[in-house]
Design a protein around this nucleic acid. Structure first.
Lengths: 292, 292
DNA sequence: TAACTGTCTATTGTCGATAAAAGACAATAA
DNA sequence: TTATTGTCTTTTATCGACAATAGACAGTTA
């Protein structure tokens, strides 16, 4: 069991969706492009599809024989990559469960807990360490620094610097820059969510990430863009286990975003700064309130 | 050969220095503290010292019998941790050797090259990825993004934001804060180096890191402090292989630092900002000039 | 009785092995 | 003659194993 074939299973499931409205599938390299996998994996998928009687496969001819049924798909939890599994398990440990700052983190224990080898856990922790929530004692354990008030303040301090600068550079983008079109699409979704906020407020989290990432990208600075990962993951998991007032909180943020977007589209640097500051201030308040 | 005993060898060498001016060694826990290793390693060191006839060891009594000779020490290259070895080798590859942007990075090749396993190489690359110079294609290779002009500009943009803010918070530190004493010591070393610049200009690199780290620390923000790692490692390796005008360059930087330090000690926020900006501008110019 | 030592166990750091996935190259088909 | 397929090789992701190191606990010494 050196490596699970999760890439194959995930790509297979996605490929079943492709089957929907064609009588035959494209060439192997093209399928590989669409699914983001190599030809080796494409051929494994095709072989399995043939085996299940979904297609007839003879060299270039890949004729669809029938539409996929529910039981043709692999179970979703078999398609998660190991690093996703570790991330979820670890975030639950430190954000949802009561984890005090200063606690030791034990690689072996985590590995045994999830039922995997230590290598992947180590790699995850190393990747995770850039979020500033854990720290390594060389030749020894990791220390949890905790999702504390100080953490939130340090995080938002940098976030505010970066976002203000990014927003300022957004207005200097030439009108033909694709970011303007993206902004319009994002704005439209804001209106959609607001119109049906009672049912769709939970979709805000994803939209929030999309909008702010769009702003950060306009800085054209990899360090600024990469830093947004930290914000995104912290907000994502934190609010996943902190749903108090979610509907109201998200509605307010949507309104603030719309002001912010309007300011960006006005291309007036002062308005942008004002709207951006307003939103950042209230985002910070909201975050701080949710930390005991 | 699961793991080299480099921790032991390095601590042993450092322990030999401790032998200099005492007739007997302290307790095992205390030695462990001084050397930064566990008692297990301390006992291994004591055992070896006894074997070499350096001490007589009987429970609490650890009598020094003779001073260490050159051949008692382990060769220095046996004391480098594996991650240090990989780091050096990798930095030489990408900064010294002609490495073009877009080049693929092959874990197995690096591992074979150095003569180690792939695990450590992977871990190094993951840790290194936060420097923004490489990027992972999932399930596939890493891509070298190159030490380019854009990289330098993005790096210095963030650096300038962070350092200006840190310098501003430095002047608000209370007079009894240890940073002021550190600053005084750092200032003194600046004068020492300047007084003998022809012989000691090479020591600037280390002093530079110490000074700027001191400034960044006053931000009390882990993300700002951690970011300085990136600056430090990039400058360290870059100037290690780029010695043109080193003497003149360093002398000028020392002068700028002294202005900057004087401004900090004046506690005048405007002066600080001006001096900081001047130094950052010239540091950026110098860096950009050294990139083709 | 408080710190130190002897001894033992648990965890980390690193390797080699292996299934999965990527990718190179020649043969084939349109 | 250009893209596609068949086949084969290389690399990545992951595990289990094991030496080095850290750390726990009980017995010992001052």
């Amino acid at each position: 069991m050196a490596r699970q074939n999760t890439v194959f299973k995930d790509a297979f499931n996605r490929c079943l969706l492709q089957l929907a409205d064609t009588a035959s599938l494209p060439s192997e390299p093209e399928l590989g492009n669409v699914l983001g996998v190599s030809r080796t994996t494409v051929r494994a998928i095709l072989a399995r599809m043939e085996e299940l009687g979904l297609i007839r496969w003879n060299k270039r001819a890949k004729t669809v024989l029938r539409q996929p049924k529910a039981e043709d798909y692999f179970p979703e939890d078999e398609t998660n990559s190991l690093s996703t599994i570790i991330e979820r398990s670890f975030m639950r440990r430190i954000l949802a469960g009561g984890a005090e700052a200063g606690m030791q983190i034990n690689e072996l224990e985590i590995a045994r807990d999830i039922g995997i080898g230590t290598t992947s856990v180590r790699e995850f922790l190393i990747r995770f360490s850039r979020f500033g929530l854990i720290e390594k004692r060389p030749n020894s354990h990791w220390v949890l620094k905790g999702f504390t008030r100080e953490f939130a303040l340090e995080l938002t301090e940098v976030r505010e610097m970066f976002e203000l600068r990014s927003a300022a550079s957004f207005v200097t983008l030439p009108p033909e820059h694709p970011a303007w079109a993206d902004l319009q699409r994002v704005e439209a979704i804001h209106h959609e969510l607001l119109a049906d906020i009672d049912n769709r407020y939970a979709e805000f989290s994803e939209l929030d990430e999309r909008f702010h990432l769009l702003v950060h990208r306009s800085s054209a600075n990899r360090f600024i863009v990469d830093f947004y990962d930290i914000i995104a993951i912290v907000f994502h998991y934190h609010y996943q286990w902190n749903k108090t007032n979610a509907r109201q909180r998200n509605a307010r943020a949507l309104e603030e975003h719309l002001d912010y977007i309007a300011a960006l589209r006005s291309r007036d640097a002062e308005k942008v700064e004002a709207a951006c500051r307003r939103h950042l201030r209230s985002a910070r308040e909201t975050l701080l309130q949710s930390i005991p």
